[in-house]
Amino acid sequence: MTPYDAELRAAGLDPEALLAQVRLALAEDLPGEDVTSVATIAPDAHGTAVFGAREAGVVAGLGVAALVFHEVMGDTVKVTDRVPDGTRVEPGDVVMRVSGPTRGLLTAERTALNYASHLSGIATATAAWVTALEGTRARVLDTRKTLPTFRALQKYAVRCGGGVNHRFSLSDRAMVKDNHVVAAGGVVPAYRAVREAYPDLRVEVEVTDLDQLVELLDVGCTEILLDNMDSPTMARAVEITAGRATLEASGGLTFERAREVAETGVDFISVGALTHSVKVFDLGLDLG
């Protein structure tokens, strides 16, 4: 039990699983002791460290960073002035202050920054896509292209940036991709096979042309992914669908094309880059 359990649970995160992950992360840095801090800092020294934004963006993961400090220093640490995850910040803004034993502050520094900088990078990238899609019906969607063991955190950061989560696992929704279609003998046989095996489960099917789209609409498929289509073809897909299914655009979509794709009328634009290759957000920690 930590002081952050209720907050993390409300954010859709598992406090026990996250604490176990934090402990593994700290163990990478602490197979022994923090020799530099032990050598240079008096054991009774106390201080305050300031987390500051060094660029404009959206912060996420500050609660995880606070959990890192608590794991290192226990109840001797005090966290103040923490802005809520999802807050837009500017260079120079203070996003959190942490007070406690100085050795502990510096021991926890890098692990805390690694979490907050990475997750803030995802939130910032997602927010940029959300802004680019403003005024259209399209919403930005993440994928399963996440770092192993980081999926819950990365998808949380997408939510902080205003994005929408796709499925979390291979079990919570069926996603019929091209290889499934080949194995089943077509989009309709694949769709029907999933529907028969799991009648109560959501099913989304990937199509690569308009003929496959029409086949699926005719058998009642209500979630369809348009894979690697150009914008005119997507616009035609929207026209053909006429609201009978939600349409997700996917495959090689760049930020430069975001607005163009959204204006075709698709419901979702999925962006693997939000989690698999995002630039970290520049956060720094300085002793005050």
Rank of each mutant, 00 (worst) to 15 (best):
P3L: 12
Y4I: 10
A6R: 15
A6T: 12
E7Y: 14
L8F: 12
G12D: 09
G12P: 15
G12T: 04
D14N: 14
A17F: 07
A20G: 15
A20R: 11
A20V: 11
A20H: 13
E28I: 03
E28T: 09
G32P: 06
V35G: 04
V35T: 14
S37C: 13
A39D: 06
I41F: 06
A42H: 14
D44R: 10
H46W: 13
H46E: 15
G52N: 11
R54H: 15
E55W: 00
A56P: 09
G57L: 10
V58E: 06
V59Y: 13
G61T: 05
V64K: 04
V68H: 08
V72Q: 13
G74F: 00
T76F: 06
T76Y: 02
V79S: 03
V83Y: 12
E90Q: 15
G92L: 05
G100V: 09
R103V: 05
R103G: 04
G104Y: 13
L106T: 02
T107Q: 13
A108V: 11
A108W: 08
R110Q: 04
T111R: 04
T111Q: 02
T111D: 07
A112S: 11
L113Y: 05
S120L: 12
G121W: 11
I122L: 09
A123M: 05
A125D: 10
A127D: 15
W129F: 10
T131G: 15
A132N: 08
A132G: 08
E134L: 13
E134P: 01
G135P: 07
R137V: 10
A138E: 08
K145D: 07
T146M: 04
T146G: 07
T146E: 05
P148W: 13
P148Y: 11
P148N: 12
T149F: 12
A152N: 14
L153V: 02
Q154V: 04
Y156G: 03
A157W: 12
C160A: 14
C160Y: 06
V164A: 06
H166R: 03
R167E: 00
F168Q: 12
L170Y: 01
L170D: 04
R173K: 07
R173S: 10
A174R: 03
D178W: 00
V181R: 02
A183P: 03
A184R: 03
E196I: 01
E196H: 07
P199W: 00
L201Q: 09
V203D: 01
V205Y: 08
T208W: 03
E215I: 01
L216E: 00
L216S: 01
V219D: 02
G220C: 01
C221F: 07
T222H: 01
I224M: 08
L225M: 14
L225G: 02
P232G: 04
T233H: 00
M234H: 05
A237N: 07
V238A: 00
V238Y: 07
V238Q: 09
E239S: 13
T241D: 01
A242S: 15
G243C: 01
T246S: 09
S250G: 05
S250L: 04
L253Y: 01
T254E: 10
F255L: 12
R259E: 03
V261L: 08
T264S: 09
G265R: 06
G265L: 04
G265S: 05
S270C: 10
V271S: 06
H276V: 00
L283R: 01
G284R: 09
L285D: 08
L285V: 15
L285Q: 04
D286M: 12
L287C: 09
L287F: 11
G288I: 13
